[in-house]
Simulated scan of single mutants.
Amino acid sequence: MNDVVALGTNGWQRFWNRGGWWKALIAVVAYYLIYQYVPLWTLGPFVGGLTDPAAKILVTTGAPIAFGCLVLIVFAWSLGWLRELFGRQPIRGRGWMWSAVAITLLFNVLHFATIDYATAGAGIVLAWIITGLFIGFAEEVLTRGLVVNLMRKAGHRELTVALVSAALFAAMHAGNMFSGQALLPTLVQLVYTFAFGICMYLALRVTGALIWPILLHATTDPSIFLQSAYPAAGPLTGFAASGNIVVIIAGLVLLIFIRGRVAVPEAPRDGALPRS
């Protein structure tokens, strides 16, 4: 394969196709700033007049992330990466990786099963499910899609790929302190999101396609938010609420066993003639 084709047809594509952790950091920071602040300029005037709780969820939480989804799609399209991101993974998973999928899915089901739906109301439940789809798509395309791809293109081992993608995913949630969240809950959330990121990386590996961690993630946030705000009475509710601790333990333990590396074609040095 011609190296020019592998790296891209323009400077923009060649820059990103060489990969690297610092480019992954740039992508995450740029996404965070764009999705956090750009929608505020257009949605801000409408927020104050909203009185319906479900509408507030969709406008204040769902709409900015939906905008972020669009930005990520355009960015991936500009690089010619859409097929890479949503096609089959270039490295196979191992059977033990299914444990990360099973643990996450189990507690998502338990969370949904222990929600007081009568108190929450259909509107709020639907609003969080829709918002969860946006969250799952945006955060997985960014961290398990773009970040993983950038790390692999730089030739890093899969353990490093998993660590960096999970660390950047967790770092995005540090911004919750700017919205008034206390330090201790934020630190706990960072540990959880890092471990959850490892589980989503394992889901990507073992299923072989990005769509599955997207859907798994899309059911995680709304199930946790709804179960925390509207818990049903009963002993199962307490057990379901312990899911975050189990995910933390699973993610931190399972990352130890991550192995492998995706082979990348050797690219020509800057200024060198491409090989055919």
Rank of each mutant, 00 (worst) to 15 (best):
N2K: 12
V5K: 10
A6E: 11
G8E: 02
G11N: 04
R14A: 14
F15A: 13
G20H: 10
A24D: 05
I26Q: 04
Y32R: 03
L33G: 12
Y37P: 01
P39Y: 04
L40S: 14
W41H: 11
T42N: 00
L43H: 12
P45L: 07
D52M: 04
D52K: 05
P53G: 07
K56T: 12
T60A: 12
T60R: 09
I65A: 06
I65V: 14
V71C: 07
A76T: 10
W81M: 13
L82C: 11
F86P: 14
G87A: 01
G87T: 05
R88C: 07
P90V: 05
G95P: 09
S99T: 12
S99C: 06
A100T: 05
A100G: 12
V101I: 07
T104Q: 08
T104A: 06
L106Q: 14
F112C: 09
A113D: 10
T114F: 02
I115G: 14
D116N: 15
Y117N: 13
Y117K: 11
G121Q: 02
A122N: 13
I129R: 02
T131N: 07
L133I: 11
I135C: 00
I135T: 04
F137L: 04
A138Y: 05
L142S: 03
L142R: 00
G145K: 02
V148A: 06
N149P: 01
A154M: 09
A154E: 10
G155P: 14
E158G: 08
T160Q: 05
T160F: 04
V161H: 03
L163R: 09
L163H: 09
A170H: 13
M172C: 12
M177D: 13
F178I: 12
G180C: 10
Q181D: 14
T186N: 05
L190N: 15
V191E: 10
F196T: 00
F196W: 05
G197V: 00
C199G: 07
M200V: 00
A203Y: 01
T207H: 01
A209G: 08
P213E: 00
A218V: 11
F225A: 09
S228T: 15
A229G: 15
P231C: 14
A233K: 15
A233L: 06
G234P: 06
L236Y: 15
G238M: 05
S242P: 08
S242D: 09
G243D: 01
I245D: 07
I245G: 10
I245W: 08
V247S: 06
G251D: 07
G251W: 00
L252F: 15
L252S: 14
L252W: 12
L255F: 15
F257W: 11
G260K: 03
G260W: 00
V262D: 08
A263C: 13
P265M: 10
L273Y: 09
S276G: 14
